[in-house]
Design a protein around this nucleic acid. Structure first.
Lengths: 212, 212
DNA sequence: GTCTATACTTCGATAGAC
DNA sequence: GTCTATCGAAGTATAGAC
C-alpha cells in the first residue's frame, strides 16, 4: 500500500488551494468534474501537483471528506444545541447547500469502494449527534429519537433531492405537514436568538437550489 | 442537433445486446462504468458499435431509461392494482433491486443535463401512478394520498440507500413503525392472492442488496 | 444496413529535475 | 520540500470500408 514516492506537507499553502478548488468543482459540477486536470486548472496550478499533495484521486476525495465532515459536524453540534433541536435539525437537513455536497459524496461512494466505508462512518457520526440532541424532546413526540431522525432525514432528502431534479408533486402538503408537527412540538418558527436562516432553509426547498 | 451520420436500426440484434450489457454494468458497477469501451467488451462487440447504435453516450442512457421505465411502470401498475395498494407500494419502493437502477439514473441526472428532464418526467409518471392507486385508501389514513406517497418514498429511500452504504442506525424501529401503520390500515401482510414477494421485499431491506 | 480504422482528448500516475 | 516532463491507458466520436 505504501508508496516510495514523496508527498507534500499537510500544511503547505498549495495543498489547501487545491482542496478549495476541488470543493468548488464538486459543488458546481459534481464529483465527476473533480479530475486532477480540472482541479489544477481551477487552482491555477499544474495537474501533477494534485498527485504530489494527494497521491491518488481517492486520497484527494478522502481529504475533502475529512475537511467537510469536520466542519459539518461542528455546524450541526452548534445548531442542535438550540432549545428547539427538532426544528434546528429540520433546517439543517433541508438546507440545499449542505445537501448538494452530501449527495455528491454519497454518489461518489457508489463508485469508489475506498470512499464508501469512510462515508458510512461519517454518516453514522452525524446521525449519532442528531439522536443525541433530540433524545430529550423525542419523548414528547411519542416516537423514539432514532426513528424521528430517520423520518426527518428521509422526508427532507426526498424533497430536496427531487426539487433539484425538477419533481415537485406532493412536496408542498408534505412540508406543511412537517411544519404543523414542528409547531405542535416546539411552537412557531421564531427561536430565542434570531438564528435567521430559520425560514430561509425551509423556503429554499421550494426554490432553485443555491450553493453552500 | 441532427447528425448526417447513419445509425443502426432500432430492432437490430446487436442494439439489444448492447443495451443489455449497459444495463448489467450499471447495475453491477454504477453508471460511471457505462463507457463505450466497457459496454462493448461486456457485449463481446467493438466499442465503435456503441456509437453506431447510439450516436452519443447520452443517447444510450436515454434508451436504457426508456426501456427501464417502461418495464418499471408496468410492474408498478400491476402491483398497485392489489386490494392493498399501500402495502404493495411499500414493497415496491423498498425493493433494493429496482432502487439500485433508479439511484444510478438519479445520480446520472446530476451530471448529465440531457438526462435530467427525462428522469424528472419519468419520476412524475411513477408518482402519479402511485397517487392514483392510493387515492381511495388514503382517506382512511387521514393523510392525503400525495403526502402518503412522498412520505413512503422518502422513508424507504433513506433506508435502502443507507443500507447499501453500510449505515443502519434507526432503521429497524423505523421499519417496525411503518409495518405497524400498514397493518393498522390494510391488515397483516398476507394478500388475497399469494403475491409471494410480500415479506421478501421488506426483509431484503435488512439484507445485503441483490440485483433486480 | 453493418461494422472497422482511426483521430483526438482527457485521465491518473510516476520518475526525476530543481 | 516543491514542482515539471512525460507515459500509457481509457474515453468519445467520426469517416469511410464492406
Amino acid at each position: 500500500m505504501a508508496s516510495p514516492r514523496r508527498i507534500g506537507a499537510p500544511d503547505a499553502k498549495n495543498r489547501a488551494v487545491l482542496l478549495d478548488a476541488a470543493e468548488q468543482l464538486m459543488l458546481d459540477e459534481g464529483y465527476a468534474a473533480v479530475t486532477s486536470r480540472r482541479v489544477a486548472a481551477k487552482a491555477g496550478l499544474k495537474p501533477q501537483l494534485v498527485h504530489y499533495y494527494f497521491r491518488t484521486m481517492d486520497d484527494l476525495f478522502l481529504a475533502m471528506l475529512a475537511r467537510q465532515s469536520e466542519a459539518g459536524l461542528d455546524r450541526q453540534a452548534k445548531a442542535l444545541a438550540s432549545d428547539r433541536p427538532l426544528r434546528a435539525l429540520w433546517e439543517l437537513v433541508t438546507d440545499p447547500g449542505g445537501n448538494v455536497m452530501t449527495m455528491e459524496f454519497v454518489a461518489l461512494a457508489n463508485h469508489r469502494k475506498t470512499i464508501r466505508a469512510e462515508i458510512a462512518r461519517v454518516a453514522e457520526q452525524f446521525r449519532a449527534g442528531q439522536i443525541d440532541a433530540i433524545t430529550q424532546v423525542g419523548e414528547r413526540y411519542g416516537l423514539p429519537p432514532d426513528v424521528l431522525v430517520v423520518l426527518m432525514t428521509g422526508i427532507s432528502q426526498v424533497i430536496v433531492h427531487e426539487r433539484a431534479l425538477g419533481v415537485s408533486t406532493g412536496h408542498e402538503p408534505t412540508l406543511a405537514l412537517v411544519e404543523e408537527h414542528l409547531r405542535r412540538l416546539e411552537g412557531p418558527a421564531e427561536p430565542t436568538e434570531p438564528t435567521e436562516p430559520a425560514v430561509a432553509a425551509v423556503a429554499a426547498v421550494a426554490e432553485p437550489g443555491a450553493g453552500s
